[in-house]
Design a protein around this nucleic acid. Structure first.
Lengths: 223, 223
DNA sequence: GAGTGGTCTAGACCACGAG
DNA sequence: TCGTGGTCTAGACCACTCA
């Protein structure tokens, strides 16, 4: 049996996809919607939370809930963020020392001097992606390649999780909206780690895409 | 300022990671925890929802909340699910006709006869992954390669989203726990689509991993 | 200041699991 | 039958946005 907020979400979803509610339009206020559906405000907010997670609406504190335009999704493709046109990027560079997961990611001793490059891409007003790249300061690092390293090999580890409170505020997203977390480790031909990149992409506006070319199939190779 | 349920989640988190609460142990009941933290039950449940999304606890209706063991995460690696040992797999085969997204994915006309292969992997009691593979029935499909097709090229599109209610019940996960959704389209040398695979992996127990080998860096190729 | 969403309260009732 | 988590109610108060 579908729960109440699921039913309400389904109704609003069809209103959006059928065009009864158009892109950019403001929904009724949450108290009004609650009385309309004859539910309490927390229940109605649960319904809206589902639509938000699907990227159908955008909640703006103090203003209202708005129907999202046809999504202009950002795609992370094999180490590259596209479209890379039309993106405003803000940068910050910090020096720090290796700690925590960075030690094993970069395969360096603890407290190794590192440089952190922080990138925040925007599309118009809304932030779209957060990238942090860590480079050992030892071997005289040039500016790292934000999009893709010229490394021999890159390894992308992808998981879905909730954002940390800091990430949520930097990306201006709700703390309950899942993000794609991509950890890319680039190594050179000798196996040395050149850089580690941590990307955080809001799930309502970003995908990742990987294209694999397989060697010619050998007969009976695979079950 | 951190919200109340964030603070409570942080406290419980440290109790788990420091070992004050051990794997498999049951937490106090939610009403008891609520009185202990001097909050209402919805607030306490918000805190537990965060821990659940992080994979630290497991909620079992009618029994209690349990500390998860050291996570045995499943990794989807370039078209292969590992570990593929120790997995129970249940299968179902269905014949249907192309509709909706399947039409564009498989590049076939609407209502083309298809075969759906459904795989549900378990690890012990708990389901771990849900895979649906669609193959056009036209070119006499052999049993599809579950793990990886012998195709010329595979394209993996990855996103994070909430599960559909059906997926949530099949995987026995909460409807609020995000999943990694992987859509893999395999094509042969002529560009014909061999199969489309839809994987659903609970975010608290699965990752995806891709390894890219770059061609030797050409000087000044990349900015 | 008026209206909005964000968070929280203190309960109620139902569905599930185990004895 | 009893204790558990799942869902929902009907409010309250605060923070933010805009006029």
């Amino acid at each position: 049996m579908p729960s109440l907020h699921q039913t309400i979400a389904a109704d609003l979803r069809t209103q959006i996809t059928t065009g009864h509610l158009k892109a950019g339009e403001r929904l009724l206020s949450e108290p009004r919607l609650a009385t309309h559906y004859k539910v309490s405000t927390p229940t109605l907010r649960n319904a809206l939370a589902l639509l938000q997670a699907e990227g159908l609406i955008e909640k703006i504190h103090g203003k209202g809930n708005y129907v999202r335009g046809p999504l202009r999704r950002l795609t992370y493709t094999g180490g590259r963020l596209i479209p890379d046109t039309d993106l405003h990027v803000t940068t910050r560079t910090t020096n720090l020392r290796a700690h925590g997961d960075l030690i094993s990611l970069l395969k360096v001793p603890a407290r190794t001097p590192l440089t952190e490059f922080l990138y925040l891409t925007h599309q118009g007003e809304s932030p779209h992606s957060l990238t942090r790249i860590y480079v050992p300061r030892d071997p005289a690092p040039a500016k790292p390649s934000w999009h893709r390293s010229a490394a021999e090999q890159s390894q992308d580890q992808i998981s879905a999780r909730l954002p940390t409170p800091e990430e949520a505020s930097m990306l201006r997203i709700s703390a309950t909206l899942a993000v794609l977390s991509i950890t890319r480790v680039s190594t050179d031909t000798t196996g040395r780690v050149l850089e580690a990149a941590l990307l955080v992409l809001p799930s309502d506006r970003a995908d990742a895409l990987f294209i694999t070319r397989n060697p010619p199939a050998e007969k009976g190779q695979e079950g």
